[in-house]
Design a protein around this nucleic acid. Structure first.
Length: 182
DNA sequence: AAGCTGGCCTACT
DNA sequence: CAGTAGGCCAGCT
C-alpha cells in the first residue's frame, strides 16, 4: 500500500481527544483517548513515522473522519462498534497474524499472550507482546484484551491503569490487578 | 550479520 | 504470596 498522502485529523469525544491517520479509504492508525489534542497527536505521530518504514495492517472505512473519531471514542468507553476486517499487504507477516487473532476477541472477554501464541502454533510469547506493543490501531485492534497467563494485566502503551479502565468499562471483572475469568 | 530488546513464561527460592 | 533468573522468539539495529 502506498503511504503518501497520509491525512491526520483529531476530534473530541466525551471530553477526550482522539486522532486518526487515514490514507485514501483506510485507517492506518489511531490514538487512545487523551486529555488534549497535542497528546493525541504525539500518540499518533509515533505510529505514522513507523508505518512509513514498515508494513502494518489497516482497515477500510466508509465514513467521514468525524464519524470515525466518534466510533473510536465509543470503543474507548466500552461500547461495541463494528469496523471492517483487518487487511495487510503481506498476510504471512507474523505480527499481522497476531493482530488478526487479537481482533477476534469479543468485547467483554480477554485472552492471554500465551493463548494467542498457541492459536498460531507458536511458542513465541514474547514476540506476541512485541507485536502488540507496536499495534498501530489500539482499540480497533483490542490489544488491551490480552493479559498475562497468571491473569495479571501486563503492559499497555497507555499504561496499565488505562488498560484496567478499558477492561472494566467493557464489563471485565478485575480484583486488584488480577482479571477474574469464569 | 550478530547482537539487543521486549506489553512473556516457567521454575524455583 | 513476591521476586527473579534463564529461557523463548520475531524484529530491529
Amino acid at each position: 500500500m502506498k503511504k503518501n498522502n497520509i491525512l491526520i485529523s483529531t476530534g473530541k469525544y466525551q471530553g477526550l481527544y482522539f486522532a486518526v491517520a487515514c490514507c485514501e479509504d483506510v485507517v492506518i492508525s489511531c490514538s487512545l483517548g487523551r486529555e488534549n489534542e497535542k497528546k493525541a497527536l504525539e500518540d499518533i505521530n509515533a505510529f505514522v513515522k513507523k508505518s512509513k518504514k514498515n508494513e502494518f495492517p489497516y482497515v477500510k472505512i466508509n465514513s467521514t473522519d468525524s464519524q470515525l473519531v466518534k466510533n473510536i471514542g465509543k470503543l474507548f468507553y466500552g461500547k461495541n462498534t463494528e469496523f471492517n476486517s483487518l487487511e495487510h499487504d503481506n498476510e504471512n507477516n507474523f505480527s499481522f497474524k497476531v493482530l488478526l487473532e487479537v481482533s477476534k476477541i469479543p468485547l467483554g472477554e480477554v485472552k492471554t499472550y500465551k493463548e494467542i501464541a498457541e492459536k498460531m502454533d507458536s511458542e513465541a510469547y514474547r514476540a506476541v507482546g512485541n507485536a502488540l506493543n507496536k499495534n498501530p490501531l489500539p482499540l480497533i485492534i483490542p490489544c488491551h484484551r490480552v493479559i498475562r497467563t497468571d491473569l495479571s494485566l501486563g503492559g499497555f502503551r497507555g499504561g496499565s491503569e488505562m488498560k484496567k479502565e478499558l477492561l472494566k468499562r467493557e464489563g471485565v471483572r478485575i480484583k486488584g490487578n488480577i482479571v477474574v475469568r469464569d
